[in-house]
Amino acid sequence: MSASLRPDGSLGALREFMRAFRVQMRVIGALVLRELHTRFGRHHGGYVWLFFEPMMLAGCIAGLHAVIGHGMPGDMNVVGFYLTGYVPYYLFRGILNRSGGALHSNAPLFYHKQVTYLDVIIARNLLEIVAVLFAQLFLLYAVGVFNNQFPVNPAQIAVGVVLMGLFCHGISMMITSATVIGMEEVDRFIHPMTYLMIPLVGAFTMVWWFPSDFQQIMLLNPTIQLFEYIREGHFGPIVPYYYDLTYVISAVAITNVLGLLCLKAAGHKYPYLSDV
């Protein structure tokens, strides 16, 4: 408690911040490893499921459409179209559906005071984003082997998937906050909502298919723009794409700031989760 222990001035504040930052990085790293164990375990294939789960679903959907022989407008490859639709949608659904119980299922962790709500949410969503990103690129290249259509700009696809993940991360913080303060009903709505959202998120449609006044309404939705962006990364300029990265990044930033504020409010008001 002596004064000499307390760092003074901005340098001290910076050092203090760096120390806290290192603690948080360490905790998130430990949580990611732990999350890997709790979700996938070591038996029955273990971590393979992390990538196989999204791949299996997306592969089946894409394969089904290819077999039925749906042609896509603008000569887009059917399998490529559904893979760039379903995989990012899988990320969207995965993060939102699992955000309700995120903290309750990890309640024992909060006995350790260095573990915060935010750390747990970041660790979970980080794992989800990395897995889906890997699955997305792997699937697109694997299909490319057969139809000789490889991603035109893989970096753009990666940026798109990560932005999608960050957008969902922001929303998931709001959902989690709501469940923490006792509004568990929110979680009940999320599940059906993510299904009802399928036509609205833009996973299986493209903006240029629609009349221009309708396009204006569609483009208000940042996820629609993200699907356009990811598809441009895969197909290149064969059809028109509509997106505005500034708009998308602003939306990601705003949802994240709002999510953090919600979480902060929830954490200060109801820090009793370790009782659950």
């Binding site: 164990h37 309640a107 024992p108 962790l109 006995y111 350790h112 370790s274």
Partner: peptide, 11 residues
Amino acid sequence: GAIHGSITGAD
């Protein structure tokens, strides 16, 4: 609390 049930003691 403080221990997680679905992972091993070593974990």
